[in-house]
Simulated scan of single mutants.
Amino acid sequence: MQVLRKLLFPISLIYGLIVFLRNRLYDMGIFSSKSFSTKTICVGNLSVGGTGKTPMIELLVRSLGQDFQVAILSRGYKRKSEGFLLSNDDSSVEDLGDEPFQLKTKFPEITVAVDADRRNGISQLENIIKPEVILLDDAFQHRKVKPDFSILLTAYDNLYVNDWYLPTGNLRDSKREASRANVIVVTKCPSDISKQDRAAIAVKMNLAADQKLLFSFLMYNTNLKGTEVTLDSLKRKKVTLVTGIANPAPLEKYLHSEGLTFEHLKYNDHHFFSDQEIAILREKECVLTTEKDYVRLQSKLPKLHYIEVKHEFLEDGKAILEAALKQFMTKTS
């Protein structure tokens, strides 16, 4: 696979040129970026693959939801509906897509909407809901909307500064666009990452003085959901780990570190399981999955467990982020 990606280097040059020209046209005002009266916070990345966007959206909901009326707008990737759709009690994972459905299930009091056209989605939310702040999920590269505050995520083991354009690398946007972010979070760090390592990353990032660089690691909940058991109790069972996420490696590493033995069935990100695949999984003694996969499997498999994950910041990172959010939300236009 790596050899093939290197052979496709000329295509990545063409892709990079297209990305550069597109961004320049936006920078010059030839393509327009629209601002809205409602405050908008964008969470995204420059690369394909998992950087922890959904756990970051969850963190923002918990930080802002107590004091402000929050709405979430997502594209709803791989959903089976079209256009703008506002979630309700009857919405399904097929209607919304797995991540928006996960968010609606976890935060039923929060408005969740999906629309590939972010401009239209924001306008619809302003007309119907009138929220105080809209969280834009995975929208950093969608420059038709100019967000008021942007959080850029990059994974510790695949920093955007070390990456290259698709298809040779994983970048879908230019490294230069990181300059538009208010906060950059290096996610999936080792929990014991050294100050020297963080300092070296900061040097590589070379951020502007007004940009904040934070570091986070993934914290897994050993009290499993779905069927209420502990992770430790699964050590006596024949466990099948089922993942349909971009990068399951951190989860694999964590489970091994906890002494869990398992077979791992890997599927593509946002995978919708076929009847044949469900039949195979039904024969397994114990199925453990991610929260995102759980919303696609919960109605089809008995005795299904999932493991929750959230971002934990190093040192005072969470306080810094919450202070920046508070300053943003209380700032008058």
Rank of each mutant, 00 (worst) to 15 (best):
E291V: 01
L64F: 02
S47R: 11
F273T: 09
S257H: 06
K303H: 15
L304F: 03
Y26C: 12
H142S: 10
L125I: 01
N120G: 04
A323S: 14
N223E: 14
I57N: 06
G317R: 04
F313T: 13
A323N: 14
L96F: 06
G49V: 07
G76V: 03
I72E: 02
D210P: 00
C189S: 10
E283R: 11
Q69H: 11
N120K: 13
K212T: 15
K106P: 03
I110S: 01
E285M: 02
E132S: 09
K195S: 13
F262Q: 10
Y77Q: 10
D137I: 04
A324Y: 01
D27C: 02
T105H: 03
Y15G: 04
I11A: 12
I18M: 13
R172Q: 12
T261V: 14
D27L: 04
D293E: 08
E277S: 10
D157A: 13
K34P: 04
G169Y: 06
D163T: 04
D269V: 10
K106H: 09
S194E: 03
M56P: 06
S216N: 08
V19C: 07
T154A: 07
A324I: 02
F84M: 12
T40N: 12
A200E: 12
R5S: 11
G44W: 09
T227H: 05
L255Q: 05
L304C: 02
D157E: 15
S179C: 07
P302A: 09
L260P: 11
L260S: 11
L321R: 02
I122Y: 05
G83W: 10
E126F: 02
H142N: 15
T261I: 12
Y165C: 04
T51I: 06
C189N: 05
R236H: 13
E82M: 05
E258V: 08
I245E: 05
L231S: 06
A323G: 00
R198L: 01
L85A: 02
F68Q: 05
K253W: 00
I193Q: 02
N268R: 10
V242D: 08
R22K: 13
R180I: 06
H256T: 14
E263Y: 09
G44E: 13
D293G: 04
L171W: 05
D138G: 06
S87I: 01
Q196T: 11
L59E: 11
Y165P: 14
E177N: 11
R282L: 15
P10V: 05
I41W: 09
N158I: 00
D269Q: 09
M329Y: 02
I122W: 09
E126N: 12
L73W: 08
V295N: 01
K253A: 15
F101W: 03
V70K: 02
S32G: 00
R119V: 15
P250V: 09
G226S: 04
F68A: 08
E277R: 12
N120E: 13
I134A: 01
P302H: 00
F140R: 01
L214T: 07
L231Q: 09
R22W: 10
K292P: 08
D293Y: 04
Q141I: 09
D67I: 01
I278R: 09
E263D: 15
M219P: 00
S33G: 15
N88R: 00
R143T: 05
I128D: 09
D95P: 01
A279W: 04
N127D: 15
D148H: 14
D137W: 05
S233N: 11
C189Q: 07
Y220N: 12
W164N: 11
L64A: 03
Y156T: 12
